[in-house]
Design a protein around this nucleic acid. Structure first.
Lengths: 365, 365
DNA sequence: CTGTTAGCGCATTCAA
DNA sequence: TTGAATGCGCTAACAG
């Protein structure tokens, strides 16, 4: 219950506690702040006074003095996306265990939003930033450099940026994709679709064009595309631009594109999807064409989930260590803050290909 | 590019900008803070100096003076859960559009964590709190009262609390559940399972016991259970305690329980699930028993998703306005902060039953 | 061990 | 209109 005096107004301050306890402000501050030495008896009195007044330290004022806010900033594409939600959960769990809270900002893959978000975090004086940046080139990382210049440590998560020498916590996108496509190839497939490629409007005609377009976009997507090409190369399967979807990355478009690939003269018999929405889009296409998997189309996708396991037949999927991705990022950010030596390296976490039943040999046509 | 003088250290302050511009601190503060009158020429000089120095206002210091932090606190069970992730996204989107950032804390349905989270937010002097509280009774809301006493407005989201006269943004859980079960009944079912009930260890034998247990737990679950009972009552179907799952709310347990219900002498022919994990758990049970839906078991669940739509057959599901839930909560919290009259009411958003193909008449046994 | 004093960076009186 | 002076609540030197 709140004390019944008409205090000045607002929450009780440390001065009021000191007055109530009959000690100096510093003494109250020391016991309440948990630093310096205070005799047991005084400490007792201060604590009692604080309790009585319902005192709670003003973290803002404390941050003003100490220069640390015990707050981390997190910038992701979309906190509503289950993948990022999982990553953020990992970040929050480990950072909170170490006394840090988290401000999360979504950018929707928009660079301007990302810059604005970075500024917000700078203004709020966060102690560090974890960012899944949409930036790729040199010219797009000024905001990150700004944060760094102001002494705010930044760690990259999910997406590396070559132009920046920073800690990054990512997964083995390229190898994971390659492994998946290899499984498809091992099952006998040679016409393997890829959904999705870079969101360009003009469809690339050559492998070079495609790669160029990819490198102008999301790092993860580019890496996955490279893994796909790696696997094809190793099996001496020629690259066919018709088998990779480009354009807006929506479930609807994925459906359209997979339908298209399914209707090609030499149609696809297998498909690799880089994301959940691509998988559900593909599944719609299969049904729409009155086909069934894995008979008519073998399927492997990124981002395993409970749903994928209960599909009929269950889907072979790539499982990402989502929570660990965030946890590790927080760790890498926090360790130096607590005195450890900064590393400046790329931390690559491993995915796992969960073999289920969505891959079968191609039907003899 | 950062200016090349060896400044005192740290980011430039308003005093440094003032010095650089050759004006008084207050003048710099006025132009940079966007308040008060400043002559165009001076304003120009200040702006130039700020630009040159790369000045950014220290939000902490500003909050100290003004008493407002332009930060909202959000407390949910689990930011990694797609439902809450969606709600949080709604909150972030609308609050950020209005100049507020967000600190998100997860409690994992643990009341102690919830209290701790509330204290963190109080300490950080957030301007308001949105909370999906696990508290139900009078005795569990002290932390919320504390926040209120300190002048921090609180709005409830997803879960109402009777003991508190606050704004709450929720969905029509009871009606939604009732509607779903009615659809099952209309299809001819009378043995309808319910997953999941309250997480008690001792299985309730009577309806009264069950309701009592439910009211000691999550508000949403209780409401959904009531909706289930409402539908049974209307159809004069006697309540059978064997048809409601109690205990830990995990996918594994759901599978076990559904298997059990499927093996009952008078087995269930339909199932209503209150959550996604319950649905996937049920689906596993169906497969495990070598049964198929909707032939052997009709199914309706809460929380529609892209997956549910691409299942084979596609699932009839209840769609929640997840984003809107968060958006509305933020609105209700922010409006009074910007001068509007507080309402103190329950805002009930409507769900939508998405009819697909997981309901069929019961098989004649 | 304790109390006094001086900032942290900004907003905001109050004179000038 | 502008600038000097105060205060927000706390930490941290410093002296006692």
């Amino acid at each position: 219950m709140p004390a019944d005096r008409g205090r000045t107004s607002g929450p009780p301050t440390i001065s009021e506690v000191a007055a109530e306890a009959g000690v100096g402000r510093a003494t109250a501050a020391r016991t309440l702040g948990g630093y310096g030495y205070v005799s047991p008896e005084l400490k007792e009195r201060v604590l009692a006074a604080a309790e009585k007044l319902g005192y709670r330290a003003n973290a803002l004022a404390r941050s003003m003095s100490t220069g640390v806010s015990h707050t981390l900033g997190v910038i992701v594409a979309d906190i509503g996306n289950p993948f990022f939600a999982g990553v953020v959960r990992g970040i929050c769990d480990t950072s909170r265990a170490r006394g840090f809270d988290t401000i999360v900002l979504s950018t929707y893959e928009n660079l301007d939003e990302e810059v604005a978000a970075t500024n917000v975090l700078i203004d709020k004086r966060v102690d560090g930033v974890i960012i899944a940046s949409a930036a790729v080139g040199r010219g797009e990382v000024a905001h990150i450099r700004t944060a760094l210049d102001r002494g705010i440590p930044v760690v990259l998560v999910d997406r590396a940026i070559g132009a920046l020498d920073l800690d990054a916590v990512v997964i083995n996108n390229r190898d994971a994709a390659r492994e998946a496509v290899e499984v498809l190839i091992a099952a006998g497939h040679r016409r393997i679709g890829f959904v999705w490629g870079p969101p360009v409007t003009k469809v690339p005609r050559t492998r070079r064009e495609l790669l160029a377009a990819a490198s102008r976009n999301l790092w993860t997507d580019g890496e996955r595309l490279r893994g796909y090409l790696d696997a094809l190369d190793d099996a001496h399967i020629p690259f066919d631009p018709e088998l990779v979807m480009v354009g807006p990355k929506t479930e609807e478009r994925a459906t359209e594109e997979v339908v298209r690939m399914l209707r090609l003269p030499r149609r696809i018999t297998a498909l690799f999807c880089t994301e959940t929405d691509a998988v559900t889009g593909a599944l719609r296409a299969v049904r729409q064409e009155k086909l069934s998997y894995p008979r008519d189309l073998s399927l492997i996708g990124f981002d395993d989930s409970a749903w994928a396991a209960v599909m009929d037949p269950p889907l072979t999927m790539i499982e990402q260590p989502v929570h660990q991705l965030g946890a590790k990022a927080a760790e890498v950010l926090l360790d130096p803050l607590e005195g450890a030596e900064p590393r400046r390296e790329m931390h690559t976490l491993r995915t796992r290909l969960v073999l289920r039943s969505s891959v079968a040999p191609p039907q003899p046509s």
